[in-house]
Design a binder for these strands. Structure first.
Length: 743
DNA sequence: GGAGAGGGCGTTTTT
DNA sequence: CGCCCTCTCC
């Protein structure tokens, strides 16, 4: 089958797709046919007699690479088999496993997911007797966070604490110690976390040039998607793999970099030309996804960024409605309004072409209730992962012990099912077992009659190492009684979930690979029944996807942008790019919902919410604004009457400190986004100056009164003109001094 | 050292 | 509210 590249691709896409050798960087704006370009390049390579075996396609999710390889097969008219595709992590795993001896893991290796890391750190913390009696001691999740950040950003623990958690600086020595113990424990137990995969692969390639060269010969064609989200070690891996020929195609969009928290450095994409000499640069700038009104809005979002994005996206889809901004009374009514917007959109698009996006997983809960009530099917991406559910981890612990007897985390879990056995005893039993201390093991067996049968069962599982389906089946039967005892409320549902596992396992030849894939494949198991369903997704999980109708919810301060990001300028920048990614997912329709109040679990009450700066700054020229009425309807805001979507008359300010408050000039639709220097960012906290002067010394730590929040206690002064005040029922607020009366 | 009861406290994002 | 940590009693 001949492929008509001239017809199928525009000139820039074609240049990328037909590129044969040498380094090339493809800057692909949102919706510019990036996937299509990669797909056609794959097809072109194979058509010009490059063996699929010689192609390595590294992507951000496994789903993305599968889809690209599949589509390339469709273009070619025959399946493209033999090409290697996957994430950096899954590629690293397969290389390390193939070279386990050289990598220093002759006994094999077990992958840890995030909760395993936290469990291990919790263990170590308890074992080292750290943090007892100290309520503010960093929790295991925090410890895991700091350690993985330190590795991904390749900064010291102190550096991370200094930058993003200075309140934990007193614990620096402890965290360093825990990080070291964590490293040793993993090593001793044949465990690897996500970060280890990348660093161990790098080490392997550096220490064994023959393996590196073998990989280079195997993969003369390397392609890396989402290059803006690679971190330092990933970029070094690309260089190690590319070798002197530097035959790499990197594809990405600096404006869509949203993984800095995971160590992604935009510098990788910006410095690609320095790392690979004579790199060709190709820009894809025509947007094929969105209508012009949607692009107008996304261009405003991007124009507000401090960093200069030299982009000029254009589209030929000139028609279409302007995006809507809808102010609802609360997050509860937001869910109801979202459902009615969905119902309306559903008259124009199939359900699976409609998505609701949000900043964090929990934000969809009220909507999920509303959708269920309305009888609308939905599918959620980016929530609790299938393999992290407790019952799944339970059953997998048996299999982990079949593959790796040194895995103490698995021992803890499995032995913990025995009545009267907790963490300490589990440790003792496992240690005795591994040390071959039959005497003390016999004592344990006497004390816990269920121990011996359990060990017998585990032995049986070990013999099934290369029959994972049979092993899983056995483990399930053995575990079934515990399932009922452990989860009396919902064990039938969990049992059904476990059934899905047995459908997955049939694709594997060894327990080890089965376990690794569950860890590496973030996707939940597919639920076929809800194929035509509305998609609910975090913005991060929505990366690379598109829908005809997109609804963004919870566009208020502390939610989107997230509370944690509002302290620092560069985090706010990433939130902005996230907002950009979210809005650019929409093809035909975009609705932004701003709840006027949100439920605060902490106080168990609803509190007023401030509209997200990303919405406040949008001029009326790019969106139509609506307000929810008390009777539940929507009223189009009249230009003259519109008081601004959320007035700041109460003086309530978000804790954002803007270095140089400058007003941005009015935006003209269609204008080319300009650099930050020319267009200063919108001022978030544009409040009138204090109207009266007050003696701050006297007011410190006293009581004050605010006309909305009532009486509160001043806990800090924020120079030059604000207080941090704790209002009962509302929590901590930053308030301009002029708006509170001292008591 | 385990099991169960009571209290503080805080929600990003993912391989 | 729910998780996690601590305390108490066995």
């Amino acid at each position: 089958m001949t492929i008509d590249f001239d017809r199928e691709l525009n000139p820039a896409q074609r240049e990328a797709a037909l590129h044969m050798g040498g380094p090339v960087l493809v800057i692909a704006g949102a919706g510019s046919g990036k996937t299509r370009t990669i797909v056609y390049r794959l097809a072109h390579l194979v058509q010009t007699h490059v063996s699929p075996e010689n192609i390595l396609l590294l992507t951000f999710t496994r789903r993305a690479s599968q889809e690209m390889l599949h589509r390339a097969g469709v273009v070619l008219g025959r399946p493209l088999t033999g090409a290697s595709g996957g994430t950096f992590h899954s590629f690293a795993y397969s290389v390390l496993r193939r070279n386990a001896v050289e990598a220093g893991y002759p006994q094999g290796l077990t992958l840890m997911d995030r909760s395993d890391s936290e469990d291990l750190l919790g263990e170590l913390k308890a074992h080292l007797d750290l943090g007892r009696g100290d309520r503010s001691y960093p929790k295991r999740a925090t410890l895991a966070d700091i350690i993985t950040k330190s590795r991904n950003k390749e900064l010291s623990i102190g550096g991370i604490l200094d930058r993003e958690a200075y309140h934990l600086l007193p614990y620096q020595a402890d965290v360093e110690r825990l990080a070291e113990e964590y490293r040793k424990a993993k090593r001793a137990q044949g465990l690897m976390d996500y970060d280890d995969l990348l660093f161990e692969l790098e080490r392997l390639l550096l220490e064994h040039p023959e393996i590196r060269d073998q990989l280079r010969r195997r993969y003369p064609f390397v392609m890396v998607d989402e290059y803006q989200d690679t971190n330092l070690v990933q970029a070094r891996l690309v260089r190690l793999l590319a070798g002197d020929s530097g035959n790499v195609m990197a594809v990405g969009d600096d404006a869509q970099s949203i993984y800095a928290f995971r160590g992604a450095v935009v510098a990788n994409i910006l410095e690609f030309p320095q790392h690979f000499q004579n790199a060709k640069l190709i820009r894809l700038e025509q947007n094929y996804r969105s209508t012009q009104p949607i692009l107008d809005l996304t261009n405003v979002v991007l124009a507000g960024a401090q960093m200069k994005f030299d982009k000029h996206l254009f589209t030929e889809r000139t028609g279409g409605a302007r995006p809507r901004i809808i102010q609802t009374l609360s997050d509860q009514s937001q869910a109801v309004q979202a459902v009615s917007i969905i119902t309306d959109m559903a008259s124009r698009h199939p359900l699976h072409e409609i998505a609701v996006l949000f900043r964090a997983g929990y934000q969809s809960y009220p909507l999920e209730v509303a959708l269920t009530r309305a009888g609308l099917p939905y599918r959620k991406y980016g929530g609790v992962r299938f393999h992290e559910a407790a019952h799944v981890k339970d059953i997998l612990a048996y299999l982990r012990l079949a593959a790796n007897p040194a895995d103490m985390l698995a021992w803890q879990r499995v032995l913990g099912f025995l009545k009267g056995v907790g963490g300490k005893t589990a440790n003792k039993i496992a240690t005795a077992l591994l040390a071959g201390d039959t005497a003390s093991l016999d004592k344990h067996k006497k004390r816990f009659p269920d121990l011996n049968p359990l060990l017998g069962e585990l032995d049986a599982l070990r013999r099934l190492n290369h029959a994972p389906a049979a092993a899983l089946d056995r483990a399930m039967s053995f575990y079934a009684p515990s399932l009922v005892t452990l989860y009396p409320d919902d064990y039938p549902k969990r049992q059904a979930g476990l059934e899905q596992l047995s459908q997955i396992v049939v694709n594997y030849k060894s327990i080890e690979d089965f376990l690794a894939d569950l860890c590496l494949d973030g996707t939940q198991t597919e639920d076929d029944r809800t194929e035509n369903a509305i998609v609910l997704s975090t913005v991060h999980s929505a990366k690379g996807l598109e829908w005809r109708g997109v609804i963004l919810i919870d566009l208020v301060e502390d939610r989107f942008p997230s509370k944690k990001a509002m302290q620092r300028q560069e985090d706010m920048e990433e939130e902005r790019r996230l907002m950009y990614v979210a809005c650019t997912r929409a093809k035909d329709e975009l609705a932004l919902i701003v709840p006027g109040s949100v439920f605060n679990r902490f106080n168990n009450c609803r509190e007023p919410a401030v509209t997200s700066p990303f919405v406040t700054e949008l001029p009326d020229t790019v969106a139509d604004r609506y307000t929810e009425t008390y009777t539940g309807g929507l009223r189009r805001n009249d230009e003259k009457l519109r008081p601004g979507i959320m007035t700041r008359d109460d003086g309530y300010l978000a804790p954002v400190i803007c270095p140089e408050p400058v007003r941005r000039p009015a935006y003209e639709p269609g204008a080319r986004p300009v650099s930050a220097a020319a267009a200063p960012r919108a001022q978030y906290d544009a409040a009138p100056p204090p109207k009266s002067s007050m003696d701050s010394a006297q007011s410190k730590f006293g009581l004050c009164e605010h006309k909305i929040f009532g009486q509160g206690k001043i806990v800090a002064e924020i120079p030059p003109d604000k207080y941090r005040v704790n209002f009962p029922g509302f929590g901590l607020k930053v308030i301009v001094k002029a708006y509170v009366k001292l008591l």
